[in-house]
Amino acid sequence: NMTTNERRVIVPADPTLWSTDHVRQWLEWAVKEYGLPDVNILLFQNIDGKELCKMTKDDFQRLTPSYNADILLSHLHYLRE
């Protein structure tokens, strides 16, 4: 019986294949993992993996503070390698 913190996010390895639900799961995981403040996951609700991967730093900064944008982008970049 796992707690929420221990729950593994199971999403496709390639972020471009993510559904909007996968994006939400990834964001929820990242918020907990990195202790990100002020991430409004609802702002990302219509973004799927293909859109997420096209987003620039400016795009991320429209949805979340700069600090969060940096961490989310670097993790996304890591996943795409």
Rank of each mutant, 00 (worst) to 15 (best):
R7F: 09
D14P: 00
T20D: 05
V23E: 00
D48H: 04
I47S: 01
P65L: 06
P12S: 05
F44E: 05
R24Q: 14
Q45L: 04
W29M: 10
L63T: 02
N46S: 12
Y78L: 15
T4C: 11
K50L: 09
W18S: 01
M2S: 07
T64S: 06
D38V: 01
D59E: 08
D70G: 09
R8K: 15
R24H: 05
D48T: 13
Q25D: 09
Y67C: 15
D48W: 00
L72F: 10
L27S: 00
Q25N: 05
F44M: 06
L43P: 06
R24D: 00
Y34D: 03
L43A: 11
T20C: 14
M2R: 09
R62E: 08
N46K: 07
E28T: 10
S66C: 11
K54S: 14
T16Y: 12
I47G: 00
D14M: 02
I10T: 15
D59S: 06
T56D: 11
T56S: 14
E51Q: 11
L79M: 15
G49K: 00
Y67F: 04
I41S: 06
D59Y: 01
K57G: 06
N1G: 06
D58S: 07
Q25L: 14
T4I: 14
E6D: 08
A69V: 10
L52R: 01
L27W: 00
L17Y: 08
W18Y: 01
K32H: 10
K50E: 13
W29K: 13
R62M: 14
M55Y: 07
S74T: 14
L36I: 09
R62L: 06
N40M: 03
R62F: 07
R8Y: 02
C53H: 02
T64I: 03
Y67Q: 14
D59T: 14
A69E: 01
P15F: 04
D58P: 15
L43D: 11
F44A: 05
F60L: 08
I47F: 05
H77E: 14
W29H: 14
S19Q: 04
V39I: 12
V11F: 14
Q45K: 13
E81P: 07
S19I: 01
S74V: 06
L52D: 02
K57T: 06
L36M: 10
K54W: 03
I10M: 13
V11C: 15
Q61D: 10
V39L: 14
L17P: 00
L76G: 01
K54C: 07
K32W: 06
W29A: 15
W29C: 12
D38L: 01
Q61E: 14
D38E: 08
K32Q: 07
A13Y: 08
S66A: 14
F60C: 03
Y67P: 13
S19V: 01
A30C: 07
E33H: 07
D38T: 09
R7Y: 07
T3M: 13
L73C: 14
V9G: 15
L27Y: 02
W18D: 00
L36W: 04
C53S: 06
E6I: 12
T20P: 14
W26N: 01
D14C: 08
V11Y: 15
D14Q: 03
L76Y: 01
R24L: 11
H77C: 15
D58A: 13
I47L: 09
N46T: 10
Y78C: 13
A13P: 15
T20Q: 09
H77Q: 08
L79S: 06
L73A: 13
L36R: 01
V23G: 00
T16A: 12
Y67K: 08
F44S: 04
V39P: 04
T3Y: 06
T4S: 07
C53K: 03
V31L: 03
D48Y: 00
L63E: 01
Q45C: 04
Q25K: 11
V11H: 15
H75C: 05
W18L: 00
Q61G: 11
G49A: 01
Y34R: 05
L79G: 05
I10Y: 11
D38R: 06
G35M: 09
G49I: 00
V9S: 15
T4F: 14
G49Y: 00
R8S: 07
N5M: 14
E6F: 12
W26D: 00
E6C: 04
K54F: 04
F60K: 00
D21Y: 05
Y67L: 10
D38M: 03
R8Q: 11
Q45P: 03
M2V: 03
P15A: 04
R8N: 13
P37Y: 11
V23H: 01
D59N: 04
C53W: 02
L17F: 04
G35S: 12
L42S: 12
A30T: 09
M55I: 03
N46E: 13
A69C: 05
L42P: 13
D38I: 01
D38P: 13
D58R: 12
W26V: 01
V11E: 14
K32R: 09
E28A: 11
V23P: 01
D59K: 05
N68Y: 03
F44H: 03
R80W: 04
T56K: 14
E28I: 07
I41P: 10
I41E: 09
D38Q: 09
P65Y: 15
A30W: 03
L73W: 10
T16E: 09
W18C: 00
S19Y: 01
P65M: 13
I10R: 14
V39R: 04
D14I: 01
T3E: 09
L43S: 13
R80P: 11
R7L: 14
T20S: 09
G35Q: 13
L52F: 03
N5W: 11
T64K: 02
R62H: 06
S19W: 01
D59M: 05
R24A: 10
V39W: 03
Q45V: 06
I71K: 14
V39H: 05
E33V: 05
E33D: 12
H75Q: 13
N5V: 11
M55V: 01
